[in-house]
């Protein structure tokens, strides 16, 4: 058994500190250690993107990051997207709902986090840029049509300053 390692991570604005096995994947740390089950796992090979979270503001596949690598980092998960308590949604969440950008919902948290990175890099993307920006996330239900539509709509509402700031 490998020696455990202490990690200090700020998750959704809250400081967390845990002793973990070095091989613990960040996604399991979030799900099992911290109980943040909104981040999902859909493959073994960094293809599906269901496990996407933001690490220091950038999207990463948390199944391909060790929890120990997140030491000192700020991590944001789907649970941290909307301000807690008042029922408000992030504009991307709002747009996914409005435009039927999800069906089974399993890829959705990862898709929303990937979209957040995309819109941070490119607040006014073309459809093609949205499609390429989401190439690391697989969805089997929607054919991506309404996801793309939702991200375009979210971009517009974020540009016009409607809804909750990112």
């Amino acid at each position: 058994m490998a020696e455990s390692v202490r990690v200090n991570v700020t998750v959704n604005g809250e400081s967390r500190s845990s002793e973990v096995e070095p091989r613990l994947l960040l996604v399991h740390y979030l799900r099992d250690t911290l109980g943040l089950t909104g981040t999902h796992i859909g493959c073994d090979t960094s293809n599906c993107g269901a496990c996407t979270v933001l690490m220091d503001g950038e999207s990463v596949k948390s199944c391909t990051v060790l929890a120990v690598q997140a030491d000192g980092a700020k991590v944001q998960t789907i649970e941290g997207m909307a301000p807690a308590g008042n029922g408000a949604l992030h504009p991307i969440q709002e747009a996914f709902w409005e435009h039927h950008g999800l069906q089974c919902g399993y890829c959705t948290p990862g898709m929303i986090m990937a979209a957040a990175d995309l819109l941070k890099r490119n607040p006014n993307p073309t459809e093609e840029e949205v499609r390429h920006g989401l190439e690391g996330n697989l969805c089997r239900c929607t054919g991506y049509h309404n996801i793309v539509k939702a991200v375009m709509a979210a971009a517009e509402s974020m540009r016009s300053g409607e809804g909750v700031p990112a």
Partner: peptide, 9 residues
């Protein structure tokens, strides 16, 4: 290379 998430790491 791959996708944004991979390029970020």
């Amino acid at each position: 290379i791959a996708d944004q998430q991979v390029r970020n790491r």
